[in-house]
C-alpha cells in the first residue's frame, strides 16, 4: 500500500439492499476478508420494505477500493443495490448502553448531571444497577464511557452504526424497477458508470 493510498483512506459507509437469504452475510463478508479488509462496523436489519434487508457496513479504505468492493457486492445474485458514501454524505448514529451501580447515581448529584449533559436516558432502574442509553457518534458514546468509568461503570455495549444517506430518495421506487420483468427503457443504471470521474483513477 503506497503512502498516497493510506492518506486517501477514510471511513466509507456501504449500504446494500438485499434479499433475506441464508448465507448471504457470508457471501458479502468474504468480499472484504479476501482483500484483508477489516469491517469496522456491520448492521443488518429489515428495511422499510418487507422481505428486503439493509446492510450498513463501515470500512476504512480509499475510494478506488470501495468502488470496486461495492460493485463486487452488487454482483452477488441476491443483492439488489449497493451505495457507498463518505461520512459527510450520511447522517449516522450508534446506540450505546451503560450499566452503572444505582447507589452511585442516587448519591452523587454530579453523575446525574453528567448523564443529562451527555443526553443519556435511563432504560431500566433496579435497586442494584441502572442502564442508561445514548445515541450519537463514536466520540459522544466514547465520552460517556470516560465520564462513567470513575463511578463504577459495570458494563458497556455499543451497536453497529446505522446511516441514512442524505441524497437518497429511498428504495421504494427502485424496487419497483427491479420487480419489472421487462427491462426498463431508461438507460441502464449503474451509479459507478454515471459518476466515473469520481470512481477511479489509476
Amino acid at each position: 500500500m503506497s503512502q498516497q493510498a493510506s492518506i486517501d483512506r477514510q471511513e466509507y459507509n456501504i449500504t446494500a439492499y438485499t434479499e433475506n437469504q441464508v448465507g448471504l452475510l457470508n457471501r458479502i463478508a468474504i468480499i472484504f476478508s479476501r482483500r484483508k479488509i477489516n469491517i469496522e462496523s456491520l448492521n443488518v436489519s429489515p428495511s422499510e420494505i418487507e422481505g428486503i434487508h439493509r446492510f450498513n457496513i463501515v470500512i476504512n479504505e480509499t475510494e478506488e477500493v470501495v468502488g470496486k468492493l461495492a460493485r463486487q457486492i452488487e454482483k452477488q445474485i441476491e443483492v439488489l443495490k449497493v451505495y457507498y458514501n463518505t461520512n459527510a454524505d450520511v447522517i449516522w448514529q450508534e446506540m450505546a448502553l451503560y450499566k452503572v451501580p444505582t447507589d452511585v447515581i442516587a448519591e452523587k448529584a454530579i453523575v446525574e448531571r453528567l448523564l443529562r449533559e451527555n443526553g443519556a436516558r435511563a432504560v431500566v432502574i433496579r435497586k442494584d444497577y441502572t442502564v442508561f442509553e445514548t445515541t450519537g457518534h463514536r466520540e459522544e458514546t466514547d465520552n460517556l464511557i470516560r465520564v462513567l468509568q470513575p463511578y463504577g461503570l459495570i458494563e458497556f455495549v455499543r451497536s453497529a452504526r446505522i446511516a441514512i444517506i442524505k441524497a437518497s430518495d429511498g428504495f421504494n421506487s427502485k424496487l419497483r424497477e427491479f420487480e419489472r420483468r421487462e427491462p426498463s427503457t431508461e438507460p441502464a443504471e449503474n451509479e459507478y458508470l454515471n459518476s466515473r470521474d469520481k470512481v477511479f483513477t489509476m
Binding site: 438485499t18 434479499e19 441476491e78 439488489l80 420487480e179 427491462p183 427503457t185 441502464a188
Partner: peptide
C-alpha cells in the same frame, strides 16, 4: 429480481 444478467446498452 435481484439479478440483472444483461445490462441495457447505453
Amino acid at each position: 429480481r435481484s439479478y440483472r444478467p444483461v445490462p441495457i446498452v447505453r
